[in-house]
Amino acid sequence: MPITNLLSELGIMPLRAIVFQSLLLMVAIVLEAMVLRQQLRLGYRPSMQYAATLNLLATSLGWMAFLAIEAMLPLSLRSQIISYVLFNRFYANSWREMLPVAVVLAAIAAFFATYWIKLQGLTWLLKLLGQAPAEAPPIPLEKDRSQIYDRARRGQIAALPGMGPQGPSPRALAVLQANAASFTAILAVLLVVNQVGVLGW
């Protein structure tokens, strides 16, 4: 049978990863769109489009980083990754003790890397769409300072140096919140799936 020959030629395929990643991406895009819409006062459609573009960009760059780093790791660590991908468990070798720490560190690094990519991506995207808001006009230092004093007197915001008169830009805050929301949701889904064993694993 040629069709069975073809299937056995294909071997092991990352089908579960594709299905699972698509589902997680949908969850993340919807959540981030909600956060961006609220924080940046965007319309329904643009917030969805921005969230989708940023998440797809971050995901594909993440894949590339994973594939590049994986090729450079020492063999004993690579075989642990292989073990996790194929069998969903680590096996006993010299890295066994350090792996939980390494996984947590990698997750934290992934969070900040994703945040940076999404923030940069949003800036590029707005520039591409010709919607980049004109840079805030430079306020003369005297006025700036008087404003800070003014606000401080009224006890509003403790303006930090280097953050500009309005504090951190609303875009950076919105992307940070969106990223945190999607990471939390994805982590929750992963934990539930691992505990309950949905889909037979």
Binding site: G11, I12, R16, S79, I82, V85, L86, N88, G200, W201
Partner: peptide, 25 residues
């Protein structure tokens, strides 16, 4: 994944039913 399997052919002999990433028809 195919290059992993080329490097470690015995991996194919094991069951991948527990995997969260891969599926074998």
């Amino acid at each position: 994944i195919q290059s992993w399997v080329r490097d470690y052919p015995s991996l194919v002999a094991d069951s991948v039913d527990n995997s969260a990433f891969v599926y074998r028809i």
